[in-house]
C-alpha cells in the first residue's frame, strides 16, 4: 500500500523529517506516536501533497506509484485521505456542494458518472446513519463555526463519503470529549476492511483503546525510533516519551 524510504523534509533550513522509513500493507492499522515537534503532522502533510517543504528527499510509493509525482488532488483521487488536525473553515462554501464536488471528482477519476442530486443525498444519508451523525453539519458552510468535536466528526464523515484506500488521521482525537472520541473511533472501525489501511497519528494512547492498531511506531526527531505492537502504546502511556528520548541519545 504505502512504502516510505528515507523520507526527508525541511522547513526554512530546519530539518523536520530526517530519513523516515515506514511500510504499510493493505488492511493494516498503524499508529504513529511521538512527542510534540517530532514531525508527526509534517509526515501527514508531506504525504498528502502540501507545498512549502524544502529539501524533500527519499522515496514514497503509494499503490505502486511515486507519490511525489502526483498533485495533492490526484493523491486524493487515488485513494489517499488526510484527516486534518485543524480542519479549515471555509465560509461561503456549503458543505453539501463541497462534498458533492469532491465525491464526483473521485467518481470521474474512476470513470463513473457523476451522482445526481438525489443519489448524492441518499449516499449522504446512509453515511450519516452509519456514523450516527446528526444532519445539521451538512447544511452549513465547510467547518464554519463548528465546535472542535464537530470538525473532527466532519473529517470522519468526509472519509466515509470518499472511501479512501489509505486514511491518515492527524491527531483526530485532540480536543475531543469521550463521546465524540467514540463516534470518531466507531467511524474508523466501521470503515475498516482488508483493502483499506489507516495511519493514526496521535499524541496519546487514549484513541488506541478504541482504534486498535496492528503496529505502533514512535516518531522522534524526524525518524521512527521504535516500532512494536499495540503494547508499545501502553508502555509509552506509562513511561512517557522521556524513556524513548534517553534510549535514542
Amino acid at each position: 500500500m504505502l512504502t516510505i524510504k528515507n523520507l526527508k523534509a525541511s522547513v526554512e533550513d530546519k530539518e523536520i523529517l530526517r530519513g523516515l522509513n515506514l511500510d504499510v500493507k493493505a488492511g493494516e492499522v498503524h499508529a504513529i506516536m511521538g512527542p510534540n515537534g517530532s514531525g508527526k503532522s509534517t509526515l501527514g502533510n508531506v504525504l498528502s501533497g502540501k507545498e512549502g517543504y524544502d529539501d524533500l528527499d527519499g522515496e514514497v510509493e503509494f499503490l505502486g506509484e511515486d507519490l511525489f509525482e502526483l498533485a495533492a488532488e490526484d493523491r486524493a483521487k487515488k485513494g489517499l485521505f488526510l484527516g486534518f488536525q485543524y480542519p479549515v473553515e471555509i465560509p461561503g462554501v456549503p458543505m453539501v456542494n463541497f462534498l458533492k464536488a469532491s465525491v464526483n471528482e473521485h467518481r470521474k477519476f474512476k470513470g463513473l458518472e457523476p451522482l445526481s442530486a438525489s443519489e448524492f443525498l441518499k449516499l449522504m444519508r446512509e453515511k450519516k446513519e452509519m456514523l450516527h451523525l446528526d444532519s445539521q453539519l451538512t447544511n452549513r458552510s465547510v467547518n464554519e463555526g463548528f465546535s472542535g468535536g464537530e470538525k473532527k466528526k466532519n473529517e470522519i464523515f468526509q472519509m466515509a463519503m470518499l472511501e479512501p484506500k489509505l486514511a491518515i488521521l492527524d491527531e483526530t482525537d485532540s480536543g475531543l470529549d469521550i463521546d465524540a472520541l467514540k463516534i470518531v473511533a466507531d467511524g474508523v472501525n466501521a470503515l475498516k476492511n482488508p483493502e483499506r489501511s489507516t495511519i493514526v497519528i496521535t499524541h496519546y494512547q487514549r484513541l488506541l483503546e478504541y482504534i486498535v492498531p496492528d503496529f505502533v511506531h514512535v516518531l522522534y526527531q524526524g525518524q521512527i525510533v521504535k516500532s512494536g505492537g499495540k503494547e508499545l502504546a501502553l508502555e509509552l502511556e506509562e513511561k512517557g516519551y522521556d524513556w524513548i528520548k534517553k534510549e535514542t541519545v
Binding site: G49, E51, G92
Partner: peptide, 28 residues
Amino acid sequence: EEALFYIRTRGINEADARLMLMNAFAHE
C-alpha cells in the same frame, strides 16, 4: 492557502479550488 490545500486533499483540482474560494468570497 490553507483552505486551498484542504479542498485539494478532497480531490478537487487547484483551479476549481480557487474558483470555489473566490465564489465563496463573493457569496456573502
